[in-house]
């Protein structure tokens, strides 16, 4: 299965959330790989703590591969052996493969979608689908040629299942923008339909993920004044109404990730050790990733709206 991760704006936590989902999915015993298609700023290497490709690879990365620059196969990084983080460097018993395909250091966005580039993209998806249970593709933020390319590629791979995750923060602007990215002019649905997808079928394959969510009843808010808490509660109610008006509401939401200080200060994988031993991460955050990692392949969570 192919999963495309996209967000309306930058800074939504798309990359850190999608990498954590992939990591949890591997821990659940599946073979997974992560494709850094955010060619403008390939940072997945840093999140997986693989120093050698922290800002993309200097070898043949995805960017070179897609543009046909002398790379029959893009560079692969086995996270379980190449991560600099000791806790990640041993594959836990029962875990599946965890492979990163980094972008190029200094690659830059795709200038256009050429037929040859598209053909290579289709070939890559097809080969990876043969090998991995889950292929997560970080498509970067907003409308881009990269998003158009993967929309076209999936038209050419009718029997390979795919799904889209749209990441957004829980604020007024982000809710409106996330809806716009999907249903707005030249959004995912418009572009997808133009390339040959069925609009309704495509709609059913898109779900929203809320990031950095602060629940009004969260433990962190105990110290707040009553006035502040009442204000937060009112805001949250308003956002819920806004979200459901924009069809970004609960029914089309796959999950939400609570606000966690560790993710605000450093984009990284949250391991069980971070939760249980060093206690720098919240258990709710790890649980939310774990839950999402199950839901992305659970058909019940993806039934028609």
């Amino acid at each position: 299965m192919l999963i495309f991760a996209i967000s309306d704006k930058g800074g939504t936590g798309r990359s850190v959330t999608s990498t954590n989902i992939v990591y949890r999915h591997a821990l659940q015993g599946n073979d997974v790989c992560y494709l850094d298609f955010d060619f403008g700023s390939p940072t997945a290497g840093a999140i997986f703590s693989v120093g050698s490709v922290a800002r993309g690879t200097t070898r043949k990365g995805l960017h070179d591969y897609l543009l046909g620059e002398g790379a029959p196969e893009p560079h692969r990084v086995d996270v379980w052996t190449e991560s600099d983080r000791e806790g990640l460097r041993t594959k836990p018993p029962g875990a599946g493969r965890l492979v990163l395909l980094p972008g190029n250091e200094g690659g830059g966005e795709l200038p256009a979608v050429e037929e040859e580039t598209l053909r290579r993209c289709v070939q890559l998806f097809s080969r990876l689908d043969e090998e991995f249970d889950l292929v997560m593709v970080d498509v970067s933020a907003g409308r881009s040629f990269t998003a158009e390319m993967v929309l076209q590629a999936t038209v050419r791979l009718p029997s390979v299942p795919f799904r889209w995750l749209v990441f957004h923060r829980w604020t007024r602007q982000h809710i409106i923008a996330a809806d716009g990215l999907v249903t707005g002019a030249d959004g995912l649905l418009d572009a997808g339909t133009r390339f040959g997808h069925d609009r309704n079928a495509l709609r059913d394959r898109i779900r929203f993920v809320r990031t950095a969510v602060l629940e009004p009843d969260a433990a962190e808010l105990v110290g707040l004044r009553d006035e502040q808490r009442a204000w937060l509660f009112a805001c949250d109610t308003e956002l819920r109404e806004l979200a459901s008006r924009h069809k970004v509401g609960r029914t089309s939401m796959l999950g939400k990730i609570p606000l966690d200080p560790i993710l605000q200060w450093r984009e990284q994988l949250i391991s069980d050790e971070d939760v249980l031993a060093s206690k720098i991460a919240n258990a709710e955050t790890a649980a939310a990733f774990d839950d999402l990692a199950k839901k992305i392949v659970d058909d019940a969570a993806w039934e028609g709206l």
Binding site: D31, P72, E73, Q123, S126, R127, D129, E130, E131, F132, D133, S159, V160
Partner: peptide, 24 residues
């Protein structure tokens, strides 16, 4: 060789629902 393998794997006569995932 990989391309010759791709040609077979992408045949429309195959349903692409392999019983398990495995690397070449």
């Amino acid at each position: 060789s990989a391309r010759f393998l791709d040609v077979v794997q992408s045949s429309p006569l195959l349903d692409r629902r392999a019983p398990f995932k495995i690397a070449r």
